[in-house]
Design a protein around this nucleic acid. Sequence first.
DNA 1: TTGTAAGCGTTATCAT
DNA 2: ATGATAACGCTTACAA
Lengths: 337, 337
Amino acid sequence: MEKQTTIKDIAIALNISTSTVSRALRDAPDVKAETKAAVKALSEKLDYQPNRLALSLLNRQTNTIGVIIPNLDYVLATMVKGIDEVALEAGYTVMVCQSDESYGREIVNTKRLLDSLVDGFIVSVSSETKIFEHIKKIQDKKIPLVLFDRIVNNIAAPKIRLDNIDGGIQATEHLIEQGYKKIAILAGPENLNISNKRMEGYLQTLKAHSLRTDKGHIIHCDFNQQYAYEATKELLASKNRPDAIFTISDRMAIGAMLAIKEKGLSMPHDIGLVGFNNEPIVSLVTPAISSVEMYAFEIGKATARAYIEMMSGAAGMSDQEIIIKPKLFIRASSKRR
Amino acid sequence: MEKQTTIKDIAIALNISTSTVSRALRDAPDVKAETKAAVKALSEKLDYQPNRLALSLLNRQTNTIGVIIPNLDYVLATMVKGIDEVALEAGYTVMVCQSDESYGREIVNTKRLLDSLVDGFIVSVSSETKIFEHIKKIQDKKIPLVLFDRIVNNIAAPKIRLDNIDGGIQATEHLIEQGYKKIAILAGPENLNISNKRMEGYLQTLKAHSLRTDKGHIIHCDFNQQYAYEATKELLASKNRPDAIFTISDRMAIGAMLAIKEKGLSMPHDIGLVGFNNEPIVSLVTPAISSVEMYAFEIGKATARAYIEMMSGAAGMSDQEIIIKPKLFIRASSKRR
DNA sequence: TTGTAAGCGTTATCAT
DNA sequence: ATGATAACGCTTACAA
């Protein structure tokens, strides 16, 4: 890696001072046109690019956003795309660190970015994360923080998330409406907020319709197709076999679907199935799976917007919560009326 | 954002010089144990973290890798995971910029990272990219560059990629072996190297078996399910209808599958189908789709390793090419013997 | 064992 | 219209 062209190089070559070069480069009004032209010509020729490190050190800001996410699956990737789009537009650079659902890596990532690399953070915590000291540390240092999707409740920060309860309600209401009576849920890890909220919607709705809740019909398993497949197999083999399953992700719905097919049951006749996320894949399998759209791209964009507002010092941002409404897309896997 | 603790703060508080603090922090041998202890205690208390910006400016290196990728779909996300894993392990920070298959954004991203933010680049070009000046510029500046997956031929740099020709051969050989005679291909954009190589393998194999190549059976379309769906519809409606389709991505295979089902044809009986990437989804649809595994995670790891070697000045890295062998996974969509 | 000073690349302030 | 200087946070000769 060779030395890049600096202002000093230009200054020496032109036999003027670095300050003049700096001014000329930024089109200051008090530089002789002649000088300006010479500087610009040379900087062009030498392909001068300002050193952002030096700028950042001087201004104490990097114009870089640190984005910490637990993985790069469809939903998060879509959200990152949304963040990216808005942030780039606003002149920010985005630094994405993916922690692979590992609490340890999340901490490492946070620490690294905290070393003055970014001005602020946009975070979605990993499913493994139960202790939030590293997140609190960000705030202790008075560094701007926005939480999205997998938010942390007892931290005061702008939060952008889906109305997960409503998603659970929509899915469950629909299944009930279709005549299903014994609705099971494949939920995610127990400490995962988004999962619990979707389950809350499910429980509320059962209650509202005076349907009995069977403890055995509530399964916690990892956000993972394989686990969902096995959990479903057990469900289908149980005494009180459910006649519908609501899974809190599409990946899990696919796993459930495999188990259902294997058992020789038909959807939506024998058993109804509703997933969550509305990933493209759900309309590609047979039968197509009903799923709750969570508008990931929109959530991403709203998150970046909240971040930008916060940075511009907008009042009342500190614990604003933006809640996006989900929408159930009904498909063959659960439509029997 | 408040001022972070600096070495100076510690120096003043302890009434010693900044150099002593710096030395103590780095456990230099010539610092009095007493002083060392005091410095460490205080730095702990004030939660001192070295400012990486200042370090980078000083050392002229950021220990950050700029990763430029065209999108965040399954394959690239998996590769990034591989890069991440190895790079983090080796103490590098990874900065991922996704250009959304846009040539313009790829240039913007490159420019930004070039402003002294990263020590080197790991790049996979967008499908839209036909001009490579921005990539050449990286090298003009003598900044280390590694290309992966979607490589650029006439640029001398370490390249890590799949043996795409072989992938095309494996897929086509298999289809022929299964008795298919009129094999069509859904290829990607015309200027996309990976697509052309897979097609080359396809053409070679047809030739080797003295099968006629029907111009109408070679379709270029965007890397996109919808286009693939439409292209397949046309193929199936054509006079010389193919009895097998090889698509150069699984997304496209899914699109093709939809069109095939819609037409009422059965796989593998009426028509054979082979995809590429071996994404999880292919074993979830019915029939499961045969697909060429490209070992994306391995490619990612190999890429990061090549980068690290290059940085450590290993000789002969400058235009080494690492080629990963693909492997066809045969499933129901193409197995009729 | 510790301090001083210069330097990384840039800009803002204050001269000239 | 231009130059000199200090500063951002840190390390490293060199000096003491």
